[in-house]
């Protein structure tokens, strides 16, 4: 069905784009066309891949469940993410919520500390010389390598996981903020000097807005890394959370649940990335349009 309806779309597209400008009262179908043009291709690709997967995973020696089996095993997880039967037997919404809360706390701390440190090392040559080599080494340490030390220091799962988020996402925030501060045009600094804008007001009115596009790039990379790190960390620390849900499903050989959970993890990560990009666009509107 889908393939049949989409066939005329490419040929008709140029006409439908031009027409709304002339006749705003065009039919609903014509107005929906741009949306359909954007949504249909990825939808078709997903359907094609699902079909391929169904074929490959349906053989007698297949090790992974095909989509039909995933649906049969785990339709409850997909259709009702909100159930709660106590303990760890909860819908995916609750697991995702627990993971997102950890990310929110760890990432908020990283954003605050990262922007402040970035402002410092972007402003002071001495701070750059002292801290930058250290940061360049530390930022290459993989997130999970911090977990044992973190557990030893905090002796509890929750703060350890939050620390792993913090330490993973802070580096791109620091580095991008520092680069942004260094790239504030001399013209803006001259303007600030002539009107004698100094101290906190200088940072708030000139440096932060001018560096905002860089800062948001750092935040966007940071939030993506946080999401990568939390899944891995939760597999080890246990408790409620999407990472542990996946590990738990593996231990009970519930492969279909893992497939569903992976899809949710991907969608949430995508949403986080887009939300941060949107926030960046809203806050820095104008700044990049020189």
């Amino acid at each position: 069905m889908n393939i049949a309806t989409s066939k005329p779309a490419p040929a008709a597209a140029p006409v439908s784009v031009a027409e709304p400008a002339l006749m705003p009262e065009r039919s609903l179908a014509a107005r929906l066309r741009p949306t359909l043009d954007a949504v249909l291709p990825p939808l078709l690709v997903v359907l094609a891949l699902a079909g391929l997967w169904e074929v490959v995973a349906s053989g007698p020696n297949a090790t992974l469940p095909p989509p039909s089996k995933v649906w049969a095993d785990s339709s409850e997880l997909i259709t009702d993410p909100f159930f709660d039967r106590g303990g760890l037997d909860k819908g995916l919404f609750w697991h995702l919520l627990a993971s997102l809360q950890r990310v929110a706390v760890g990432f908020a701390l990283a954003a605050g500390a990262g922007i402040a440190t970035g402002l410092l090392i972007g402003t002071s040559k001495l701070a750059t010389r002292g801290l930058d080599p250290l940061f360049q080494v530390l930022r290459t340490v993989p997130p999970l390598a911090w977990l044992p030390l973190s557990l030893a220091a905090f002796r509890e799962a929750q703060p350890s996981a939050i620390f792993v988020i913090f330490i993973t996402s802070i580096w791109p925030i620091i580095i991008n903020t520092a680069v942004g501060v260094r790239n504030v045009p001399q013209d803006y600094r001259n303007v600030a000097a002539v009107i004698r804008l100094r101290g906190p007001a200088y940072f708030a009115r000139i440096i932060l807005p001018a560096a905002a596009p860089y800062i948001f790039t750092g935040l966007r990379i940071g939030v993506g890394l946080s999401w990568l790190a939390i899944i891995a960390a939760e597999m080890l620390i246990g408790g409620v959370g999407i990472g542990f849900f996946i590990w738990d499903a593996w231990n009970s050989s519930n492969l279909s649940d893992i497939v569903v959970a992976l899809a949710y993890v991907g969608l949430v990560g995508f949403a986080l990335d887009r939300a941060m990009a949107l926030a960046g666009r809203l806050v820095t509107r104008g700044t990049s349009a020189q």
Binding site: P185, D187, Y188, N190, V191, V194, I206, P209, A210, A212, T284, R285, G286, T287, S288, A289, Q290
Partner: peptide, 13 residues
């Protein structure tokens, strides 16, 4: 000593 800069130097935000 107010300066009018060559490239205007307005703050774009």
């Amino acid at each position: 000593r107010a300066v009018v800069f060559q490239n205007h130097s307005l703050l774009p935000w």
